[in-house]
């Protein structure tokens, strides 16, 4: 699905990542962990094309990401669902329209997707908040809304950056549950987190691999941690 080959990234003030190679196979579940500032978000951005590596190659769906023009990049974004650390929404539109935004911008007919949309809202437990505006949501509700938005186009890969960063344990369990369910449906999942308890909790439910960034390199943390 997504493949990094000897990728390095340099912010201008020295190397942040060097010689990173990783392959996200279809249907796999990966955690990405490491201390703050180690480059977790950078690595994720390299995976979905928001950053271009300073060395090495990134391939997504057998396409060279560096070679894509802006429109092809937009099409790539539709195949990769991203849940950002700070989930951004269009604050003037209600939650349901924000979740449907990927459908709207890709020109899909909303009428035919109405049932799916309701089902998805129900799945993330936001049915009663459908008409609320994003600023009125709690941290956990925002994360769930962002997750729902990232999967509405049924992408093959879902990348989540600290999805449980701002929520309590119960809510992070619930988010993990949603990610695990997506993985069981065959989606490739990559989650950046520094929450080891979350990773341990996931171990009981899914075959997850843990990637750790330390001293600018990516290591596989044990076969199955």
């Amino acid at each position: 699905m997504i493949e990094l080959e000897n990728v390095g990234y340099n912010y201008g003030g020295g190397e942040l990542l060097t010689n990173v190679s990783v392959k996200l196979a279809p249907g796999s579940f990966h955690f990405l962990t490491g201390p703050s500032g180690a480059g977790k978000t950078t690595l994720l951005k390299l995976c979905y094309g928001a950053l271009t590596p300073t060395s090495g190659r990134v391939r997504a769906f057998n396409m060279d990401v560096q070679g894509l023009d802006r429109d092809q990049m937009a099409h790539l974004r539709r195949r990769v669902g991203v849940v950002h650390q700070d989930c951004r929404f269009l604050d003037h539109l209600p939650v349901i329209e924000n979740i449907a935004l990927p459908l709207i911008v890709s020109g899909k007919d909303l009428g035919g997707e109405e049932a799916n949309l309701r089902e998805l809202l129900n799945w993330v437990g936001l049915s009663s908040r459908a008409d609320a505006l994003p600023p009125e949501l709690s941290g956990g509700e925002r994360q769930r809304a962002a997750l729902a938005r990232s999967v509405i186009l049924s992408p093959d890969v879902i990348i989540a950056d600290e999805p449980t960063g701002n929520v309590d344990w119960e809510m992070s369990q619930r988010l993990l549950q949603l990610l695990v369910e997506l993985n069981r449906m065959g989606k490739t999942i990559l989650v950046a987190t520094h929450d080891m308890a979350l990773i341990r909790a996931a171990k009981n439910q899914v075959q997850a691999r843990v990637l750790r960034i330390s001293s600018k390199q990516l290591h596989l943390a044990g076969a199955d941690l």
Binding site: R77, R88, F89, L101, V105, S106, L153
Partner: peptide
């Protein structure tokens, strides 16, 4: 700017 960023994020084309 934020609206544009969100739209890019969810896969909107520049032309859109």
């Amino acid at each position: 700017a934020q609206v544009i960023e969100v739209l890019r994020l969810v896969g909107a084309l520049d032309s859109y």
